[in-house]
Design a protein around this nucleic acid. Structure first.
Lengths: 173, 173
DNA sequence: GGGGCAATACTCGGATATTAATTGTCCGAGTTCTGCAGG
DNA sequence: CCTGCAGAACTCGGACAATTAATATCCGAGTATTGCCCC
C-alpha cells in the first residue's frame, strides 16, 4: 500500500509554486522541465490541484499556475486528498460476514468492527499529515524562516512580462 | 491508496482458523469455498500467512492449516504486514531535492522532511492496528466472550478424522 | 499379521496469463495577449 | 493614432494507449496417510 508517485510530484509542484511570485504564473512546461515524468501527466496532476482549490490557473498567453493561498494554509493531507480523494485503507466488501453468515455471527457485526478498526487508524494518519504545512517543509528544506521568491520561468516572453510587472510595482528604473 | 483485497481475505482466513479446533487442520479447499476469489490465489495468501508465522501448515493427506498461536496474540497489523510487508505510504524517490537542487536548498533536507512527516503518520496508523487483536474481533462479531470451535470441514474423510481425534481425547464412547 | 507399495489428498512453490490501476499520449477547443495591417 | 484581425502561447478536458501492479491459473514436485496385496 503506497500512495501513487503522482503525490510526490504534486508536493513538488506546490512547493515550487510556493516560492514563486504570485503575480507571475508558471507555465506547465516550466514546471515539467523541473520534474520527472511526462508533460501531459504533470498537467493532469496540476489540474487536480486546481479542482481541489490549492492552485489557481490563468489561461491564455502568459498564463500558467499560481498558488491559490498562502503556503502556510496548505498541508500535506490536502495535497494527498486532492489527488486520491479521502483515504480509506480498508478494502471493504463485507466478506467477513459472508464467511460467518451461517455460523454464530451477529449480522454485520464483524464488518462493522473491522471498518471501525481501520477507520481509526486512517484518522490518525490523516491528522498527522494535516499538521505539516508546505511552509514548514520549505523552511526545513531551505533552512531559513524567510522564503525568497524564485522565478522559475525561462522564456524571453516571460522575462518581458516580469520586467513589466516589476515596473508596475517599483516604477521606472 | 487502499490495501489489496487480499487483506480482507487474509483477515477472514485467520478468523476462520481461530474458530477451528487446532487439532483438525482445515484444507485450503474448505477455506476457499467460504471466500470469494480463486482457489489458487487463496492458497497464495495462506502461504504468506504461513511464512509470516501466523498460520501453520500440515502437509499430506488430511493436511491443511491451523493457527500458529492463540488468536489473542494476533493483531491486525501482523496480518496486514504478512501480506504487504512494512507499510510505508510515501513513494519516496527524492524528487523534491532534484527540483530545488540548483536553488537555495540544503542538500537532501526536503526529502528528509517529507520522509519524516509521512513516516510519523505511518507509525500512528500501524500502532492503531496493532491494538486490535483477532480475539477482540471475534468477540465483537460473535457477541460473546467464549468462542465456540466450529468445524469447517465437510468431506467424509475429514469426518472420520474428527471422530478419531475425539476418541483420542474423550476415549471410546 | 505385517511390510512394502501404490493411490489419495493434501501442501509447496514457481512460471505464466489475465485483469485492473496507474501513468503517459494525443488532439481539438477555448482564452488571453501581441503585433501588424488598414483606415 | 486606433481598430480589428491573425497568430502565438497558454489552459481545458476528454478519449485513448502503454506500462505496471494485483489477481488468477496452471503445473510439477514433495509429503503424510490410507488401504491393499503378497509374503
Amino acid at each position: 500500500m503506497k500512495l501513487t508517485k503522482g503525490i510526490e510530484q504534486a508536493i513538488c509542484i506546490i512547493t515550487l509554486l510556493a516560492t514563486q511570485d504570485p503575480d507571475i504564473p508558471v507555465a506547465s512546461l516550466e514546471i515539467h522541465t523541473r520534474l520527472k515524468g511526462s508533460l501531459t501527466y504533470t498537467k493532469k496532476i496540476i489540474r487536480k490541484l486546481v479542482v481541489a482549490g490549492l492552485v489557481d490557473s490563468v489561461s491564455g498567453n502568459n498564463g500558467g499556475f499560481t498558488l491559490a493561498r498562502n503556503c502556510a494554509d496548505i498541508n500535506l493531507l490536502q495535497i494527498v486528498e486532492a489527488l486520491e480523494g479521502t483515504i480509506e485503507t480498508y478494502p471493504d466488501t463485507g466478506l467477513i460476514d459472508e464467511v460467518f453468515k451461517d455460523k454464530q455471527a451477529i449480522a454485520n457485526q464483524g464488518t462493522i468492527a473491522l471498518r471501525n478498526a481501520f477507520s481509526k487508524a486512517d484518522v490518525l494518519w490523516r491528522e498527522a499529515l494535516k499538521t505539516i504545512t508546505v511552509q514548514q517543509l520549505l523552511e526545513e528544506a531551505l533552512g531559513k524562516k524567510e522564503i525568497l521568491p524564485i522565478n522559475w520561468n525561462h522564456s524571453e516572453r516571460r522575462e518581458l512580462l516580469i520586467r513589466k510587472v516589476m515596473k508596475n510595482i517599483y516604477g521606472n528604473d
